[in-house]
Amino acid sequence: MRTRFSKQTAWGLAALAGLCAAGLAPRGAAKEKSDAPAVADGEVVAWVAKRVEERQPSAQDRRFDEIGWATELRTAINLGKEHHRPIFLFTMDGRINTGRC
């Protein structure tokens, strides 16, 4: 019981000291703390690289690429004639290949 009380008191004093220090600290110092980057200098290279990698399109995102697409309508029609295959044409607003559509 005594030990517990002592710990609480210690935490309280520490918190009070922290509040006082914050209150007494110059405004510039407080601002500097709030402007500090979320990721430390020593970690930022790996942190950024990991997120860049994680955010790349997945294989599932790229299944559209598994279809053999002709680059132009007239090219597709010529290939259809040449190989006696029907032509599948999809027309749309925006660019389905980049997802900006």
Binding site: G68, P86, I87, L89, M92, G94
Partner: peptide, 9 residues
Amino acid sequence: AFVCVYTVN
């Protein structure tokens, strides 16, 4: 079985 193409309006 097809020749495929897409166009952007």
